[in-house]
Design a protein around this nucleic acid. Structure first.
Lengths: 154, 154
DNA sequence: GTTATTTAGATTGTGTGCAATTAGATTGTC
DNA sequence: GACAATCTAATTGCACACAATCTAAATAAC
């Protein structure tokens, strides 16, 4: 960390911290997505679940959780809300009754087309700003992996 | 967006989206900070509030909210918890009684030293991975500003 | 085949986050 | 001074997010 990143007393400056930059841009993304997704009756985490299901149907709750980094305490109520909106069905696996498999319902399948437009809208909001979005995304992936590794190892 | 970023059906792949990368790395940061901050009895947003106050004491709720991108619905209960832990005091401004000014309490002042170590610990967790953290941070700032601008303009 | 362990989800409790509303104070205008 | 418009916090309601715990089912060990 460079010298200018700290106040005279050695306390790191809020504006200079990577974690805070990520905290803020996460909020900004949420705000950008909110009005767009509200038109589909989805929140951002719900939209992520739908994105996964549009890619691959019939996943278990655990598999969904692994892709999204969410546990059952978050997913169970979220999935129940999506089921309440008739976008998905929750069905217990016949072979292993511990597992619950999530399937797209007709209405959820029908939302796929509208989902396609969401990215266009957010892409517009980004404009050309994130010029090399791919590179940025890859760097963030490295940061994520380093943090997760150290969380696991203690 | 490059061609490889989309499935055959034109649906953008989850793993390829910048917003998802940020969503995930935000989670990862939270997990990395949680055990470290738990030792101080703080959550990550509470730590952010303390960081701001260590930099400048006596801010109003509105000013805190502007720096952290949080509104009173989030800050009011959070600040009440910090007051409950005797880290801060909430005092209504004598000149403008609509405002509530937040001051460090003795215990909150005393936490400053321990707060200094938090960044070191997270820095270690990052390792050398975020080689050019400054550059990454600046790019994220641009993304944030673009999103906020488009949110404002509609 | 019975018991112990592991696994998958659900539940509970605490803490953000934000939209919408409300309450109280201040400012501007007459 | 009266009163409307504006401003600041607080409140309420809903939706994540996660730790800790619980239940039921599957698997391993014997």
């Amino acid at each position: 960390m460079a010298k200018r990143d700290r106040a005279r007393d050695g306390m790191p400056r809020l504006e200079q911290q990577l974690c805070f930059a990520i905290y803020q841009v996460g909020h900004a993304f949420n705000r950008a997505y909110r009005p767009i997704l509200a038109a589909l009756g989805l929140t951002y985490p719900q939209y992520l679940v739908m994105l996964v299901l549009w890619e691959q149907d019939g996943l278990t709750v655990k598999e969904l959780g692994e892709r999204l980094m969410l546990d059952s305490g978050t997913l169970t109520p979220l999935l129940k809300r999506l089921e309440g909106s008739a976008l998905i069905r929750r069905e217990r696996d016949a072979r292993d009754e511990r597992q619950v498999r999530i399937h797209l319902a007709e209405k959820g399948e029908g939302l796929r087309e509208q989902g396609r437009c969401v990215q266009e809208a957010v892409g517009e909001a980004l404009g050309g700003t994130a010029g090399d979005a791919g590179r940025l995304r890859d760097q963030l992936g490295l940061v994520r992996d380093a943090l997760l590794a150290s969380s696991r190892d203690g």
